[in-house]
């Protein structure tokens, strides 16, 4: 599915300073019953965001109008648990294009990049600085620069660089995906398959 190209993103951010946020929290299993990819943003963090009677929980960050933006900043080990890509879909569909944490679960990280969300891994110290900057001013902007591989807290100018492999970076900046790449090498794959034992 096509996604928006990612180059430089300048945005305010939504803070979620909780660790080990698993994909069951990002999107509970009972909302995985669709056969199409649409509407998942409505149920992002469903059980943290809404009461049983569907009224918003006032103390949850997504219900606080002070916070908004295209960047979600979360505590370490974000996206653990189930492989459901629906978690990444919900984050994208809600409007986030970038998730920042000091540590991501592997499958979530892969799923995110595959659909055009940039996961940015920062040091624990820098993550703290981001949380503090947002706490001091909810309108504080971050700049995520993919070509330069840097993230900057704009009000303070503090900056850190982040890792991403060259192949995925190329994909994200151009809006390509792996299927395009794999389709172009089907002959090579066919030859490989014919030499397999099973």
């Amino acid at each position: 599915m096509a996604y928006d190209k990612f180059t430089v993103l300048k945005s305010t951010a939504v803070p979620l300073p909780i660790e080990n946020v698993d994909t069951d929290q990002i999107i509970p299993a009972r909302f995985l019953k669709a056969t199409e990819r649409k509407g998942f943003g409505d149920n992002l963090f469903r059980d943290w965001r809404y009461n049983n009677d569907d009224t918003p929980k006032q103390d949850f960050v997504l219900n606080n109008p002070i916070y908004s933006g295209k960047i979600l900043v979360a505590g370490k080990n974000f996206g653990s648990g189930s492989s459901r890509e629906h978690a990444a879909w919900a984050i994208y569909d809600y409007g986030f294009r970038c998730v920042v944490s000091s540590f991501f679960a592997d499958i979530f990280k892969n799923n995110s990049i595959n659909i055009g969300i940039l996961p940015v891994t920062v040091s624990a110290g820098f993550l703290d600085k981001i949380f503090k900057a947002i706490e001091a001013d909810p309108k504080a902007e971050l700049e995520v620069n993919l070509p330069e591989q840097t993230i900057t807290i704009l009000p303070t100018g503090e900056q850190e660089s982040f890792d991403i492999n060259g192949y995925k970076k190329h994909n994200l900046t151009n809006g390509f995906d792996d299927i395009d790449y794999l389709q172009a090498m089907k002959q090579e794959i066919g030859a490989f398959a014919s030499n397999r034992l099973y």
């Binding site: 890509e85 892969n110 595959n114 995906d177 792996d178 299927i179 790449y181 794999l182 089907k186 794959i189």
Partner: peptide, 17 residues
């Protein structure tokens, strides 16, 4: 385990990245 984008990759090319 893999995500749905990767399921599509395996179906269409028997490979993932």
């Amino acid at each position: 385990g893999i995500g749905t984008s990767e399921v599509e990759m395996v179906l269409s090319s028997q490979c993932i990245m």
